[in-house]
Design a protein around this nucleic acid. Structure first.
Length: 899
DNA sequence: GCGTAGACTTGCAATGAGGATC
DNA sequence: GATCCTCATTGCAAGTCTACGC
């Protein structure tokens, strides 16, 4: 029986506010998809001050760390607290923390010493030795002899370099200590900056002088940010337009995502609010004390914390959730005051963990999925050897799927045709009159489709509306699910219609028939007590009904193209499940900032390891960190296009070009080309030459490596760290950094320009490309024409203006206007020309850059929301209606938030 | 320890909605 | 009101990563 869900929590209607053209970018034109900027700017010039104006060579001293400062660290994430004393005495090896920042400036000494190594611990013990470097073996040995706690301490201290900030502790913590005002360290450098971001900093063509000031904003204590804006006073954000969301809990993602923790028995009598917050704080405090704990122990400790955290989560789960407790933006804005965690815990239902095997829901109700209508034969006859052929409905359906592909590039691909013919041939049968594809003419069917398309287009607005309403009526019941009593939007609730497989790039299966999916293909996942969804096709039934509360899918079927794969129906992006998962993802990436120093030190050390596997892991991690490459899983050759990621790079994908430059050229995800030449450290360059030696071009560069090995290694460096976290870290860090450095006083349009510029840089780092639109050339020509017309008009106005000043009648324009009026017109025309030129440059600039992907998947929305609050930019200028819904969990972020 | 099934995220292109312009 | 254009949304392909079974 279908469940009719009430509308109370239905989607909120947002007023769309589009970004005007003038808010678009005006930056250097991206001529090609190549990333040549990377290579150039990556290297730092020796003795050039780092972002804070400090030369790396002045960084030494001794380690002083305080437990209190550390305690704050953990509770505030990236906004590490420290005292100025602490920072001043912070040990920085000349090669140490800058070892990556100054890739280039190492070069000389690297060559001299053959094998450069930067040893933190060594530096720590011998701070006066800065400038000295040691052989690999020596340093490796010595490093091994040094307690990891010492190394950790260094890392921890380094992580304390922050923007000055009044550290806000959670309310319980704040009882113990007064807020600490932290000054940005003088020694602060860009060590924590993702390398790809540094490349961009050095090389981006913004023409901003702010790059040198280390971010004037950063020098301003954030406590100075208008208090009224804090705690989500929503400057520029209209609470009434925010989507209805349940708040998410604030559980540390690093902890919550650990797998298979034992569930503790629910204890309903426990004060969930306090337990949650206290436990969280406890975990934070324990983490803080970890500075002196060896890594191995620390890892165990983390695991323990995880279990504690998990328990806490389970306890929060017992909190009764009902619709009334789910916050509604219709009722109140979701701008909760930071620190008001208890409120959030109170109304939070069980957050799904990213870990498998854990209970994700208690009750789940939905109405299954919807299927496309059965095929309606049109009866149009195609031609074979010039003669009309009668086809059965089934044969005709497939022929029609092929006919509509006529204008696509797939029709130029032999593989597409070959695969189509193989599948269609089976449907035609052995003895069919049609014996080959070459003699087929699908034009009559194609033409019929075009006419139908045109008819649809020509429908009146009223007809279109009626059709849309009818569709909505049919689909309404499938659009919602009730998870633990809360109504949630379902993602795509439609079975995929039959079609021809459109694989990307040179996919071996392109053109194959994707057969029609029916109820008997579909497995439904639903609560044990929930009514089983009615099968929408009479006489048929679901393949299987499951009650698996350890997964979040509502339904799935086997992919007809690759039976090993599944197609899932999940909740929508705005659901709490997805929101929680998103938040955990960004928290993990934020946490990486605290570890990145140590990770870089570790892989730098291993560049010259004698253990080839270690060496390959080091170089691969370097590429992932530096170039934001994807991990690169292995794939079946016959199931997918020939694309690679970091671990699957082939010898032919990387060319050593001399001067420590490596040229990368390969097809990545979706067969998007990655082309980039970068200057790397000498040991990396040498290692690549070594890995390539004696191998064929098509052989694996990292033959000792796969993503499992790499991720296992990364997990030794940070809990739950995987390769993809680096991309999120890189992207979000870059956005945060650029926004804070480049935002100046000005109008909203100017600020949006800064935002879009940062967004663009992230897209370039992540290699998010798009095809140039077909109409791009025409659009540019039209803009050029318009600009020319306006320029001509301006010239005429100028002539008449000069004449009017002398009291003469106009020569060029018709109306006899006063000089002031003509002047006004001239100014308006000039402004129009300026705007059009800017629009044109933006269009050209972004013609191959896709901004959306990073915004949706890689940029922590809290960075954007906090920036909007600080700079009084309406959030609707940054996020569309659906993104506001997706990121509802981020809307109450403190304006001071930094990634 | 290894291979892979399964679950979930990321990504581009196609499509659609709605505003701007004529 | 028709057409063009832009941007949001949708569709589904193609990744990543973990748990599990051997």
């Amino acid at each position: 029986m279908a469940h009719e869900f009430d509308d109370e929590d239905g989607p909120v209607i947002f007023k769309r506010s589009s970004v005007s053209k003038s808010t678009q970018l005006h930056s250097e034109t991206r001529k090609s998809t190549s990333h040549s900027h990377d290579g150039r700017s990556f290297k730092k010039t020796p003795d050039v001050p780092s972002a804070n104006g400090q030369s790396s060579s002045s960084q030494n001293g001794k380690v002083v760390s305080t437990a209190k400062a550390s305690a704050v660290e953990s509770s505030v994430g990236i906004s590490k607290a420290s005292t100025s004393t602490n920072l001043k005495t912070y040990v920085r090896s000349p090669s140490g923390s800058s070892k990556f920042a100054s890739l280039g400036n190492k070069k000389e000494s690297l060559i001299e010493k053959k094998i450069p190594v930067h040893v933190h611990a060594k530096e720590e013990n011998n701070s006066s030795k800065h400038g000295k470097e040691e052989s690999c073996e020596e340093s490796e040995d010595e490093m091994d002899n040094i307690p990891l706690s010492a190394r950790l301490k260094m890392n921890s201290d380094r992580a304390k370099k922050t923007t000055p900030v009044v550290v806000k502790k959670s309310h319980e913590d704040s009882k113990k200590t007064t807020p600490v005002v932290v000054k940005k360290s003088q020694e602060d450098s860009d060590d924590d900056i993702p390398l790809s971001a540094r490349r961009l900093q050095n090389n981006n063509n913004l023409g901003k002088s702010s790059n040198n000031n280390g971010g004037s904003d950063q020098k301003k204590p954030l406590s100075n940010v208008q208090k009224g804006q804090q705690h989500g006073s929503n400057v520029g954000i209209r609470p009434s337009t925010l989507p209805v969301k349940r708040p998410l809990d604030k559980t540390d993602s690093l902890h919550s995502s650990v797998k298979k923790s034992k569930l503790s028995d629910p204890a309903p009598s426990i004060n969930v609010k306090q337990t949650s917050v206290k436990s969280e704080l406890k975990v934070a405090e324990e983490d803080d004390d970890d500075d002196d704990v060896p890594l191995s122990q620390r890892m165990n400790k983390n695991a323990t914390s995880v279990n504690k955290s998990s328990s806490v989560k389970k306890l929060t789960n017992v909190t009764k959730v009902n619709k009334a407790s789910a916050p509604s933006f219709k009722k109140k804005a979701n701008f909760k005051k930071p620190g008001n965690k208890s409120e959030q815990f109170k109304s939070t239902k069980l957050p799904p963990s990213s870990g498998d095997g854990q209970k994700k829901w208690t009750t789940l109700v939905h109405n299954g999925i919807i299927f496309p209508p059965p095929y309606k034969p049109h009866g149009v006859k195609m031609l074979y050897k010039g003669k009309p052929v009668t086809l059965t409905p089934e044969q005709e359906e497939v022929a029609t799927l092929y006919a509509v592909m006529r204008d696509t590039e797939y029709m130029q691909k032999a593989k597409f045709k070959e695969n189509f013919w193989t599948d269609w041939k089976v449907i035609l049968g052995k003895n069919h009159v049609i014996q080959n594809l070459e003699d087929c003419d699908f034009t009559p069917i194609y033409d019929w489709c075009q006419i139908e398309k045109e008819k649809k287009k020509q429908m009146s607005a009223a007809e279109k509306k009626a059709l849309k309403e009818e569709k909505m009526k049919q689909e309404e019941k499938y659009m919602w699910a009730i998870v633990d009593g809360v109504k949630e939007k379902v993602g795509n609730f439609r079975a995929e219609p039959p079609g021809l497989f459109r694989g990307r790039g040179e996919h071996p299966k392109m053109g194959k028939l994707k057969r029609r999916i029916g109820p008997s293909d579909v497995v439904i996942n639903i609560g044990r007590d929930a009514p089983i969804p009615e099968c929408p096709i009479p006489g048929e039934s679901w393949k299987e009904i499951r009650h698996d509360n350890t997964v979040t899918w509502l339904a799935y079927w086997n992919d007809p193209i690759n039976s090993k794969l599944f197609k899932y129906i999940f909740l929508g992006a705005s659901s709490s499940w997805k929101g929680q998962s998103d938040k955990e993802k960004y928290e993990k990436a934020r946490a990486l900032k605290n570890y990145i120093e140590r990770i870089r030190a570790a892989y730098t050390k291993d560049f010259t390891s004698k253990d080839i596997k270690k060496q390959q892991i080091a170089v691969a991690t370097y590429f992932i960190d530096k170039l934001a490459l994807r991990a690169g899983n292995e794939k079946d050759d016959d199931e997918a296009a020939d694309t690679v990621g970091c671990c699957t790079l082939k010898v032919e994908n990387v060319t050593a070009e001399g001067d420590n430059k490596l040229k990368f050229d390969f097809l990545g995800k979706d067969s998007i080309r990655y082309e980039n030449t970068v200057e790397v450290e000498l040991p990396v360059y040498n290692a690549i030459l070594k890995f390539q030696k004696g191998k064929k071009p098509s052989e694996q560069l990292f033959d000792e490596l796969d993503t499992n090995t790499l991720n296992t290694h990364l997990k030794e460096l940070m809990p739950n760290l995987t390769a993809k976290v680096f991309r999120t870290f890189n992207a979000s860090f870059t956005l945060d950094d650029m926004l804070n450095k480049d935002t100046k006083d000005g109008d909203v349009a100017e600020k949006l320009l800064v935002y879009n510029q940062a967004n663009k840089q992230v897209a370039i780092i992540c290699n998010h490309q798009r095809a140039v639109s077909k109409s791009h050339g025409t659009q540019i020509s039209k803009l050029n024409e318009k600009i020319d017309e306006l320029k001509a008009l301006l010239k005429e106005l100028k002539t008449d203006y000069d004449r009017a000043k002398k009291g003469m009648a106009p020569l060029k324009t018709k109306r006899n206007l006063a000089p002031e009026a003509i002047k006004k017109k001239m100014d308006q025309t000039s402004a129009k020309i300026k705007k059009m030129e800017r629009d044109m440059m933006t269009k050209e600039d972004l013609k191959t850059v896709a901004l959306g992907t990073s915004k949706i998947n890689y940029l922590d929305p809290r960075i954007s929301v906090a920036w909007c609050k600080r700079h009084e930019v309406p959030i609707e200028k940054i996020f569309s209606k659906t993104l506001l819904e997706k990121f509802a969990w981020a809307m109450d972020v403190d304006p001071d938030f930094r990634f």
